[in-house]
């Protein structure tokens, strides 16, 4: 029996969607902790939330949404056979991601500069709810940031594959799955942003 690599696009995408479920549940654990502790410390969470810079948070939201748009357009470009444009759009996505991480870096260093980081003396001495809020904030945005980096590497690899002709208008599963992953990273941020930056 000759071996033919199967090209079952639906199956490949099914596998990716299942993987995305696992990512949602991974963050789901953190959101569950958030829900329980928010119920317990509503006031402390609200006060701690005001210490986050909502301007930077909004900027990052806009940046990530733009990056997702670029990723989606890259898929369309490849479907139309415009691989140069697709590579450019993936470059745009990665650029946005770099912008996101830079802003995140300033936000984190500002907090750490004020002695606000998991296990810091400041948080240990403060009200209990504040420590929980910031520990969750750092864990959630930290793991999210890790996903942004992984997504960048993934998209960069796919960008090279488009250049080398391995991803084409006939065979673009990899790009489509990469874009799906990127949308997930974006989607999770859409939940993180209001939960941490916009508590009333």
């Amino acid at each position: 029996m000759t071996h033919q690599p199967h090209t079952d696009n639906l199956g490949a995408r099914l596998g990716m969607w299942l993987f995305l479920f696992t990512e949602l549940l991974l963050f789901g654990g953190l959101f569950l902790l958030y829900a329980v502790y928010f119920k317990r410390y509503p006031h402390e969470f609200a006060v701690a939330g005001t210490q986050l810079n909502w301007v930077m948070g909004t900027a990052n939201t806009v940046i990530l949404l733009t990056s997702s748009l670029c990723a989606a357009m890259a898929v369309t470009a490849v479907q139309r056979g415009e691989s140069r444009r697709a590579v450019g759009l993936i470059g745009g996505t990665i650029l946005c991601a770099a912008g996101f991480m830079t802003i995140k870096y300033f936000e984190w260093s500002e907090k750490i500069g004020h002695g606000i980081y998991p296990g810091s003396a400041h948080l240990r001495g403060g009200v209990p709810g504040e420590s929980v809020f910031f520990s969750l904030y750092f864990m959630t945005t930290g793991i999210h940031g890790l996903h942004v980096l992984i997504g960048c590497v993934l998209l960069a690899v796919i960008g090279f594959k488009i250049t080398s002709g391995a991803v084409t208008a006939e065979n673009y599963n990899l790009l489509e799955n990469g874009a799906l992953y990127w949308h997930l990273v974006d989607l999770i941020w859409i939940f993180i942003f209001p939960l941490y930056y916009l508590i009333l």
């Binding site: 902790l33 329980v36 502790y37 317990r40 410390y41 402390e44 998991p118 296990g119 948080l123 240990r124 009200v127 209990p128 709810g129 504040e130 420590s131 929980v132 520990s135 969750l136 750092f138 864990m139």
Partner: peptide, 18 residues
């Protein structure tokens, strides 16, 4: 791991965790 390595305190009553 974060509890042990960073002292996040999310499960530590003294820091408000449970």
């Amino acid at each position: 791991m974060a509890e042990r390595l960073l002292g996040t305190g999310l499960f530590e009553p003294a820091q408000g965790g449970d």
